[in-house]
Amino acid sequence: MKIGELADATGTPVVTVRFYEQQGLLPIPARTSSNYRIYGGEHVDRLAFIRHCRTLDMTLEEIRLLLEFKDAPQADCGAVNALLDAHIDHVAERIAELKSLEKQLKALRSQCEDIQAGKDCGILSTLVVSARTPAAKRVHEHVHGAHPKTPRAAK
């Protein structure tokens, strides 16, 4: 099958198929005499594996490692288990961060219960005040290249 057919068969954009080839995740396909790429069932299976891993939010490096183990079926899967455990820990950290973000957003949302003029909006006022805090100033300075002043030595 040609690249467009592989893309259709797996629900993957052609550009993504090419990207996975460039990243070494998909084997280089054979070519016809007219230089068209020809993909087979192994490409469909491997691309489906990659896509499933991506739905689990795995990085390309994690997928690369899993594919290495998949390609060595005699090796034990201890490293696969460790990789998945590390990924689970990462997901748990992200969930905690998202819960914290949700809490912050709900607190922010509570600053403006009624629809009113923008100048009286508690959300906008809170965001403006928050932007003036020392932490926000340090972030602004870091992003824009300024360095915060060195604290003076305690007397």
Rank of each mutant, 00 (worst) to 15 (best):
G78N: 08
R138K: 14
Q116L: 10
G78P: 01
A92D: 15
M1G: 09
K106L: 13
L127Y: 00
Q22H: 14
I50V: 05
S33C: 11
I63S: 00
P148E: 12
Y39P: 00
L83N: 02
A96C: 04
L127N: 00
T150F: 08
K106M: 10
E42W: 03
G4I: 10
A72M: 04
A135R: 09
S110G: 00
D71T: 01
P73S: 06
L26H: 02
L84G: 03
Y39Q: 01
L101D: 01
A153Q: 06
P13R: 10
A136K: 08
T133Q: 04
I123H: 05
V139W: 14
A30K: 15
S100Q: 14
N81H: 10
R51Y: 01
Y39M: 08
V14E: 03
K137T: 14
P148Y: 07
P29L: 07
S110V: 00
A135N: 08
I115V: 13
G24N: 03
D45E: 13
P13M: 08
R18I: 06
D76I: 06
I88W: 09
S100G: 11
H140F: 15
A9S: 08
A92L: 15
G4D: 08
D114T: 13
Y39E: 01
G78D: 06
L66I: 04
L66P: 01
V44M: 02
L98V: 07
A117V: 08
D71S: 02
E113R: 13
K99T: 15
K70Q: 10
V128N: 10
E102C: 04
H43Q: 04
G11W: 00
T55C: 06
M58Y: 04
